[in-house]
Design a binder for these strands. Sequence first.
DNA 1: GGCATACATCAAGAATGTCTATTATTGACC
DNA 2: GGTCAATAATAGACATTCTTGATGTATGCC
Lengths: 299, 299
Amino acid sequence: MLDLVRLRVLVAVARERSVTAAAEKLHYSQPSVSHHLARLEADVGAPLTQRAGRGIRLTEAGRILAARAEEILGQVEAAQTEVAEHAGLRAGRLRLAAFPSALATLVPRAVARFSAAHPAIDIALNEAEPPVALTGLRNGEVDVAMIFAHGDSPAGDDRNTTITPVLTEPMYVVTPANRQWPGERTKLATFAHARWIAGCERCRLHLVAACEAAGFTPDIAFETDDYVAVQALVAAGLGVSTLPGLALVANRHPDVRIDRLPDDHRRIAVATYGRSPAPLPVQAFITALREAMVTPAWP
Amino acid sequence: MLDLVRLRVLVAVARERSVTAAAEKLHYSQPSVSHHLARLEADVGAPLTQRAGRGIRLTEAGRILAARAEEILGQVEAAQTEVAEHAGLRAGRLRLAAFPSALATLVPRAVARFSAAHPAIDIALNEAEPPVALTGLRNGEVDVAMIFAHGDSPAGDDRNTTITPVLTEPMYVVTPANRQWPGERTKLATFAHARWIAGCERCRLHLVAACEAAGFTPDIAFETDDYVAVQALVAAGLGVSTLPGLALVANRHPDVRIDRLPDDHRRIAVATYGRSPAPLPVQAFITALREAMVTPAWP
DNA sequence: GGCATACATCAAGAATGTCTATTATTGACC
DNA sequence: GGTCAATAATAGACATTCTTGATGTATGCC
C-alpha cells in the first residue's frame, strides 16, 4: 500500500527538482526525504529518481506517479474538507421524525431557527409516532426523533438512545362548547358517563389508565390519531376527549371548550442515537428546538 | 495528513458494517481496526462511527468519508498499476537520438524488433550528432543516445552517462569509380595529393588526424555531414573521402569505388542517462539494438 | 439471569519514521 | 589538476507508531 506522505514527498521533489529544497518545503530533514523516496521506489517496484549531477531528477515512472499523486492528494484534501464542513455545520443533512402535534407547532419554529443559522444543512421531516420514530432512529433512517410520554412513564426505551427532555406540557379535557357537566371540569371523574374519543394507541392506553385512576372505565366510541379530527368529533357532540397542549396550540376548534387537567401532563423529549456526544448538527438542532419551545403559549 | 491504510480500514468497516469482519477481511486483528478508526477520527476531527448495539455503524461524516475514500483508493490503485505497466514494458515512451547513418540503418531494424516485442511503448526518433545527442540525454529530452567515436578516442564524455559499446565498424576510402591512383588503395597516403571531402566536424577532425598520421595534410575542398552528398560529390569527381561502413550500407552510389582502410575504424555505442540500471524500456531497446547489429553485411 | 457476541481499552514488543553525523559525487573555480 | 562548495545517499540512535494478545464493557438472545 502506497503512503500519502511519500506521495507528497514525491510531488515536492518533482516540483522543487531537489531533495534538499523539498525537505525544506516540507519541514523534513534531507535524509528523511531521501529515505521516503527510496521506500516509495521499493513500494511501486520501479525506479522513480535518477541522480543528475549533484541534483536529482525523476524518471518517466516518477513523473507519471508524481502527476497522479498530485491528483490523489487533492482528492484527499477535498475529502477532508468535506468531512470538516459536515462536522462544522457548514454542510450535511439532518433527518427528523416527530409526532404530529409537534410537527405542526414546535418543529416549524425550530427548523426555521436552525435553517437560518445553518443554511447549508438539509433537513428532512417525517411524521411518526414515538415507537416508529425510535425504530427509525435505531435503523439509521432518522437522526433525531421527537417523542413523548404521558404522565411519568419513561419517554424512550433507552436502548442505544439518548433521551433529552425538552418540555412538559399540560393536558386538557375537551368538551362540546355548549354542553354542561355536573361537577368540576378539572376532574376526569366528572366525565365518567360520557362517551370518549381516544387518540393514538399509546394515548388511548394512557387515557384508560387515567380514567381508571379516577374511578371509572371510559366508554370509548371513536379512535383517531388525528387531533384535528378529535376536536371535530367533540364539536359535533359525539363525545369528549383529552388533548395535550400542543395539539390545541396547533388547532383550536371554535365549538369545543377546554379545561386543564392539573393532575395530568405529557412529557416531550428528543431522542438521538447512541450515547453522547451526538453529531454537531444534531446537537445544534436540539438547541434550536429548546429555543423554539420557550414560548408555546398554552391555551 | 490522512493515512491510506486508515481509509482502507474505514472502507472495509463501512462495507462489512462490523469491526471484526473488517479486521478479518484485512487480515488485521480487531483491536488494530478499532485503533485505526480512532486515529482516523482524531485526524479528521469528527466522529465517524457510533456503537450500534453490539455492532457499529458509520455516522454521516463516516459515510461521506468512506465514499470518498473508496474513490481515492481506486485512484491510488490505478496510479500504481500505471507505473507498474510503465516499468513493465507495457506502456511508456522511449526517445532516441541517433546520428544519421545509424538512423538510416541500424535504428529502423532495432525499432521494428522492439516495437514488435513491446507494442505499447511509443518511440520518438531524433537525428542528432553525438555531442547534441549527449546534451539531450543530460537535459532529459532523450532517453537513449546512439553515438560514435573514431579510432580509439572515448565515445562519450562519461558525465552522468553510461556508455555501452555495441559495434565497431570498418572505415572505407571513397573514390570516383573510374579514377586510377598510384599505390595501395588501402593506405591514406596514396591519396595525399587528392582534394578531400569531409563529413561532420568530428569526422573532419578525425580525417585530418588520420591523414597527418599518414604523413600529409588533407586538402579539404568541401564539408558536408550528409553521407549521401559525400558520395555524390566523389562520384562527380570533386574529390575523395572516407566513410564508415554504415553510411555505405545505407547508401551506395554506383559511381564510387570503396576500399577498406584496415588501420581505421569507428566505434558505435549507446549512451543512457545515469549509472545503471537504466529503466526497463531503455534496457529492452538496447537489447533490440544489439540484436539488430549482428548482421550489418559490410560492403 | 447467564451466555455468546462485538467493540473498546491496555500493555508490550515490533516496525517504522526522523534526526544528526558522515560519506560519496559532482560541478565550479582558481 | 586540485580544492572547495553543493547535493544526495548512508549509518546509527532515538522516538513514535503500529500490531497484537489479554482484558474489560456493553448488548442481544435464550
